[in-house]
Every structure is written in C-alpha cells, then in structure tokens.
C-alpha cells in the first residue's frame, strides 16, 4: 500500500519531534539532573551539616560539674540545662564571649509551675497571683535544687487541682488529713512516703452512716445512709468522688 503524501510529511515532523525529545532526555541531559538517588543523597548531606544549637546536657557537665552534681540530686534532675538556659552550643564553643540566658524574674518558672487544670495531677503548681506576689522565684527557691524554702504546711502547694475542686464541694471544710493520714516525710520527699487513702465503706460511714456518732466539728446535717442497704457492697468512691461529692451545684 502506498503511504499518502500528507502522512509522510507528518511522519517527518513527528519523527523529528520525538528524536529531539528523546535525544534531549536520554543523551544531552546530564544524568546528574535526573538521578533521584543523587538528589536524595545531596538533601541528606545538606540536612546533616545544619548547625546544632542545643549542645545536649552532657556538654554542660564538662565545665559545670558542680551544678550538674547538685541538680542530679534534686527534683530537677530530669531537666536539660538548655531547657531553662536556652541553646548553648555557641557558649560551649566560646564560653567567655557568649553567655547563655539565666532567667531570674517571676515570668519564667510559672511556664511550668503555674496552675493549669490540664497539667497532670501531682505536678507542683502554684497560683501565680496569690503565691508571694512580686517576689522573684529565686529569692526562695534554688532552681538547680528546687526544694521549698520550708516544708509546705498545706497540701494545696502541690495538689492545687484537688484543692480547687474540694473548695467548692460539700467537703470544703474538711482538712485533707481528715481522710488522708500524711507522714511528715511526704512533704519533703513526696514519692518516698505517700499519704494513706480510705480503704473501707466504714471509713465514710464514720460520718455518713445512719448510726454514726456526731463527731466534734462535723456538720450536723451530713447526709446519712444505711450502710447495710445503700449501694450493696460497692466501695463508696465507686459512685461518689470524695473531693467533689454530688449534692452541691
């Protein structure tokens, strides 16, 4: 079969175009431009040589071993130095010329220690407005070994969330120690010696059982139930949260 004239012409154009593209792509183009692995290697190299700004806590120990030793015994033992003092690679390279920040005002410590209900229970928190207003934290606390200046008298110093909840509950007037026997050591070393928790129904029954004797200081109209029939044998706190018992809105 004879190939029509116009198809021959078209074939030349298409052929030239294809040839240009294919030669351009596979012959002329340096394979450096199309090598995926090479691009990736180059990216990784660029990434790897980026400057490090946080030196890491081991770097600080080389010179500041006294602080590190002190800190390792205190509550802040898990904290990186640069968490408070900021990135310090420059300081490590030239200790004389570059000094890291040392936050001394009242703004800094509350970043972690201001009361926030979303913070885990038991994490030491303060009410910034009420807690020794205007005094810089470091006048009483050493940030490298942050023990309270004196043993805290009340539980709210650490258990702010419970304190706030309890304050609006029917149990507002009860001291924490009414229900929790607290060894004195707990105030200095909270995880060594933990306070007790009520264990039996009879404990709550001390005030709330129908036949409970009227204790001194107890509120006369504390709600009474018959322990024998009320709530079968479930412990009370299965249904009632003692820090915020129902019955008060």
């Amino acid at each position: 079969m004879k190939i029509p004239e116009q198809v021959q012409r078209l074939a030349i154009v298409v052929g030239v175009l294809l040839a240009v593209v294919l030669i351009g792509r596979f012959v002329l183009l340096p394979s450096r431009l199309v090598a995926r692995e090479l691009h990736q290697t180059a990216t990784i190299e660029r990434e790897v040589v980026k400057p490090v700004r946080y030196a890491g806590s081991t770097a600080c120990a080389d010179c500041h071993d006294d602080v590190v030793v002190k800190k390792a015994k205190g509550y802040h033992k898990g904290l990186a130095c640069e968490g408070c003092h900021g990135p310090a690679v420059k300081h490590a390279e030239d200790p004389g010329a570059v000094k890291p920040a040392a936050p001394r005002d009242r703004k800094f410590c509350p970043v972690c220690h201001a009361y926030d209900p979303a913070r885990p229970t038991g994490f030491p928190q303060i009410n910034v407005t009420a807690h020794n207003p205007l005094k810089p934290c470091i006048t009483c606390h050493n940030a490298h070994d942050p023990v309270p200046p004196r043993t805290p008298r009340d539980c709210a110093a650490c258990h702010g969330q419970i304190e706030r909840t309890k304050a609006v509950s029917s149990h507002a007037l009860l001291a924490c120690t009414t229900c929790h026997a607290t060894p004195e050591q707990h105030k200095r070393s909270p995880r060594r010696a933990t306070p007790s928790k009520p264990e039996t129904r009879e404990f709550c029954g001390g005030c709330h059982a129908a036949d409970a004797p009227l204790k001194t200081g107890a509120i006369k109209d504390a709600p009474k139930v018959d322990l024998g029939t009320h709530g079968r044998s479930y412990p009370c706190w299965q249904c009632h949260y003692p820090h915020l018992p129902e019955g008060r809105s």
Binding site: P4, E5, Q6, R9, L10, V13
Partner: peptide
Amino acid sequence: ALSLFSKD
C-alpha cells in the same frame, strides 16, 4: 507551513 507543505 501549517499544512506542512502538503499539496495532495
């Protein structure tokens, strides 16, 4: 040019 110089 657009007709690719075809004449047929």
